[in-house]
Amino acid sequence: MIKVTYIEHNGTQRIVDVEAGVSLMEAAVSNLVPGIDGDCGGVCACATCHVFVDDAWLARLAPMESMEDAMLNLAEGRDANSRLACQLKAAPELDGLVLRTPIGQH
């Protein structure tokens, strides 16, 4: 179990316990974190799980695969710290990770 903090566009913070291996999209949906849809169920097909990674953590994430990179172009307001949460899997080294969720998905 690791702790992940989701910060909503309006500043509301939620700290969620996530089991290793579970995606941070799935963890958000099952913990009722608003702003993440996850329409395709986490197979990198919909880009409705767009999040912004806290700068302090960005370099510590596994790099994007080309599919994620391409699909992120569908996300509204893509930034240098944008990721698709379904492609981020909980792992011990991510304990304490901070993600910001957009106001809504595209």
Binding site: S66, A70, M71, N73
Partner: peptide, 8 residues
């Protein structure tokens, strides 16, 4: 087919 950019 394995071409997300074209899909988008």
């Amino acid at each position: 087919i394995n071409r997300p950019a074209e899909f988008i």
